[in-house]
Amino acid sequence: MNRFTLSIVLLGICGVLSAADLPLVDPPPGKVLLVAQPHHDDHTTDYGLAGVILRFIADGYKAYYVRGTNDEKDGRLGFPRNDMVNLKETYDALRILGMEDHVINLNWRNNFETPYALNDQREQLIFLVRKYKPDAVAGHNAWEHYQKNPGHRNLSWNYEEAYWLAGYRNVHPEHFEMGVEPHETYHYFGKARLDWGRGHRPNVILEMTEEQVKVKEKAIHAHQHVYANPGGARATRTRLAQQGLYLPDLEDVDDDTTAGNMMIEWHMNWISRRWGKEANVKYGEDYYYMGEFYPLPGLEEFLDDNVEAK
């Protein structure tokens, strides 16, 4: 299914989802955002994270990207070259997002995630949280249903524990020999597909400006190795022509790769508008957000009433 058709299908699915007035959130005060994802392109998909990254950077954060796997399966060049090209395009995309060259490669073997010891990857994430001391973290929502990709499933599962366990001195005390200290993070932004069942229920929307949406559109197709889709653009034109229709915006575009990129941008623009509607703003991204007092239900009201500024 090409992206244009996908957009139409998703539009239909989302149309039947009940609209909700989700609250808008802003980046919390802080300096460091640590985004952990398994793959080269997970920082910018139709279901999120680029908006978080751009908003946090706009607020003065430095953002780091943890790429969990070597992406060797994603592409048509064979394992080693897929890894190399996907890594290069990770840097390309992250520069577009303003993350500079802040990439940490864990290089777990792509799509061999299921059999490894979960604690091994979690331990690496705990160490990175201690080293970079993020004020906020972002990744997949570990509770998404029907997530078929073991990379997304396992890394988010590990990250959901790593970001707070890193604050416990009895968890991997050997790290302290390397000069790091316990560090607990208090803000987690989890992304997921809402059309994959009951697991992911966003509880916040992060608003984006039109300019930020444009950056997001560019960042995704920096991954040309896997996203260039000239065939999709050709097929769309052909199908439209069969019905006596055409897309005016594509008329002056001779190159099918460029046309395919334009369609990706339209899709990203559409999904950003779709989520913006949930909070009555023009553009947005949806997240499951776990805040600083999240693990203390029952105390939240007491803390709201009694915590004061120094």
Partner: peptide, 23 residues
């Protein structure tokens, strides 16, 4: 600050726990 925890001792911790359980 949470005034209750200005001084962390058995009494303040017990009060925090009580608030949590009641909540």
């Amino acid at each position: 600050r949470l005034p209750l925890l200005d001084r962390v001792d058995e009494a303040s911790i017990n009060k925090l726990v009580e608030e949590r359980v009641r909540g």
